[in-house]
Amino acid sequence: MAMLNSNGFVLTTVDELLSWGRRNALWPLTIGLACCAIEMMHAAASRFDLDRLGVIFRASPRQADLLIVAGTVVNKVAPMLKLLWEQMPDPKWCITMGGCASAGGPFPTYSTLQGMDRIIPVDVYIPGCPPHPQGLLYGILQLQKKIKEKGVKKYDKAFEEFKKDMEKQGLIAREITV
């Protein structure tokens, strides 16, 4: 919680500051799988302009902290996506865009993965076939809200380790009340 005191200083916790920074600079990985990817491109292009939200597509998983799964995930591509997810550094989030990525969508077939959450944990599901770009914007705002409420610790093993290290060295941040 940030607040303004009488001297014009903004006071906040480090956690809150980090989370604020993170949720306003979600960098997704540039990956398009199928039809939904076209709508994702539209969301990023001239009219809807995702850059406004600090969402800038990165081509390398090492620089990304958000995976937008836009399109049908078939069985063959599932292990590759999982590999990319594992290559992304913590903290990281995943949005499934569209019916296919969320739950198999209109393809209950032999070759389609029935939902992205079978291989990686998902934070926000966006329904639609494809969702309108506004739907994607809404999903990203939902994710920001989620990060704000729940913090970043969920899949954050590396961060936990880091915290433990800090604790050991006695450097852990304490709550400061004003």
Binding site: L33, A34, T72, V74, V77, M80, F107, Y110, S111
Partner: peptide, 8 residues
Amino acid sequence: ILGQLHRG
């Protein structure tokens, strides 16, 4: 190699 979007 194709088939990364083979949906049947």
